[in-house]
Every structure is written in C-alpha cells, then in structure tokens.
Amino acid sequence: MYTMGIDIGSASSKAVILKDGKEIVSTAVAQIGTGSTGPSKVMAEVLEKANLTEKDIEKTVTTGYGRFSIDMADKQFSEISCHAKGIHFLIPTAKTIIDIGGQDAKAIKLDKTGRVKQFFMNDKCAAGTGRFLDVMSRILQVDLDEMGDYDSMADEPSVVSSTCTVFAESEVISQLSRGLKKQNIIAGVHNSTAAKACSLAYRAGVEDDVVMCGGVAQNSGVVRAISMELGTNVIVAPNPQTTGALGAAIYAYEATLAEEAI
C-alpha cells in the first residue's frame, strides 16, 4: 500500500511516499510554496522518483499553510501533528522538536509515545525564521548554503540584538560599515535566530532528545547556536525539510487501516 504526504509551506513544498506505513519510497522538495506551482511540481517529482502514478496512491494527506489547496487530498492535518508524527517515526527518543521554516518557528514537546503535550509558535514577525536568514544573507552577500561555513570561522560573534527583521537589517549594515568580519556577524545572526527559537522551546519545556527540523535545520551555524543556547546536543532530523510530509503520509496510512477495520 502506498500513501502520500504533502507539506505545502510558505516558502517550499515537500512530498513523501510511504509503502505499508514503514518504508520511505521517495521524497521531493520544491523551493516554491503555497499559491504557486510548487505543490503540483513536488507531486509530479515524488511520483516520478517512485515510478508510480496517482492511481497507485491509496490515500493522500496534506499539511502546512496550503494544505486546503489540493483538491485530490483525502484529509488535512496541522503541521504540528505531522511534524510530531514524522519525527517520532524517525527518532523515537525525541521529546523536544524545534522546527524553523520559511516564515515561522515552532517548539513542540512530545511524550514518550510521540504525542504532542505542548507547543508554541512565533508571532507573524519573520525574525528568527528562514526569511530572516534570507534577508541577512543578501545584505552580507553570502549564499545561504555557505553561512554555516562562515559561522565555523567566527572568533568573536557580534551581537544582533534587534527583534525586528527591519531593525536587525540596519544593525547588520552598521556592523559591516564598522569593518566587522562577516563570519562574526553571521555567527551573531545565528545566535539571534537561536535565541528566538529557544525562547519558544523554554516555554514548551526542553527535554532530551532535542531534534531540529525544517529548512533552517540544514544551516549548521543555527544548529550550533541552538545547541549552545540549550546546553545540549541538538539532533538534526534526516531530510529535515520533509518531516511534516512524512508525518502526513503516516497519517494517510493510519487512516486507510482505520477504514479497512470498519
């Protein structure tokens, strides 16, 4: 039995196909999100990778901002539930999840069975999200995928104290004009991002294992900063962008079993 999960976020679309609720057959990520061609592109790609068609998929569950935009979906679940389900599948010892996506950040507390005990999300401000890092990378003229490398070379991280992306932008420009090293500014940006994400985690209650997912989990500098802030080793989930889609695919499988049992 094949089931599909699709996570349509603000900045990207992700999909996972699962076989018999246990085997990840294929995954795909399109770097365009809701309101675009992202969902259709990611569906086509994940099916092609698995050498399957829509007719082969028993059930499809969607999640994320754009979860109601796909007519062929059988069910929709919140991203909180899907990230929890996906992370527990991958890392059963996870108790705290930090998810940083394109325009939001979440902290989720799990019990030992993987159920959500508590969660907190940031407000609508982009500070501490992927969007914040995207703005900073453009100001610093450093590619996003290189920011982790710069972070590793920092010897005296700067302080980026502004909680607003616009004010932080001015702060970083000022630091550049004063001749501060880019690697130290980038480390400061990562520390600022970590502080905002960890404030959510503290509210939810931090307990090991701490697992990070979302697109920003691919930035080793942010992972370093969060680990330092929390005083614990943060585990990066395998394919961290697709954990929500994986959880949705698992929900699709469980829903199919429940219907068959009736």
Rank of each mutant, 00 (worst) to 15 (best):
T3A: 12
M4D: 07
I6R: 05
I6W: 03
D7E: 14
I8F: 02
G9L: 01
S13T: 07
S13F: 04
K14W: 00
A15C: 06
K22E: 15
V25G: 10
A28F: 04
V29I: 14
Q31V: 04
T34Y: 04
T37Y: 05
P39S: 09
S40T: 05
S40Y: 03
K41I: 11
A44Y: 00
V46G: 08
L47G: 11
K49R: 14
N51Y: 05
D56S: 12
E58K: 13
E58V: 10
K59A: 07
K59Q: 13
G64V: 07
G66W: 09
R67L: 01
I70F: 10
K75H: 07
Q76N: 08
C82K: 05
H83C: 02
A84F: 04
A84K: 05
K85F: 00
H88Q: 01
F89T: 05
I91N: 10
P92N: 03
T93A: 01
I97Y: 10
D99S: 06
Q103H: 11
D104Q: 12
D111G: 02
K112H: 02
V116G: 02
Q118I: 01
M121H: 06
N122W: 08
K124M: 08
G130M: 06
F132M: 06
V135L: 01
S137W: 04
R138H: 15
R138G: 14
I139A: 01
I139G: 00
L140T: 06
L144A: 09
D145F: 14
M147G: 02
D151Y: 13
S152G: 03
V159H: 13
V160H: 08
S161A: 15
F167I: 14
A168F: 11
S170D: 10
I173H: 03
S174N: 15
S177R: 11
S177H: 09
G179H: 10
G179D: 09
N184G: 05
I185T: 06
I186W: 09
I186A: 08
A187C: 08
V189Q: 13
V189P: 15
V189I: 15
H190N: 10
L200E: 07
A201S: 03
A204G: 15
V206A: 13
V210Q: 03
S220M: 09
G221H: 11
V222P: 15
I226Y: 11
G231M: 13
G231F: 09
N233L: 05
V234P: 15
N239P: 03
P240D: 01
T242H: 11
T242S: 15
T243W: 00
T243K: 02
G244Y: 02
A245M: 11
L246M: 11
A248I: 04
A249F: 01
A252N: 04
E254G: 00
E254T: 00
A258S: 09
E259Q: 10
A261M: 08
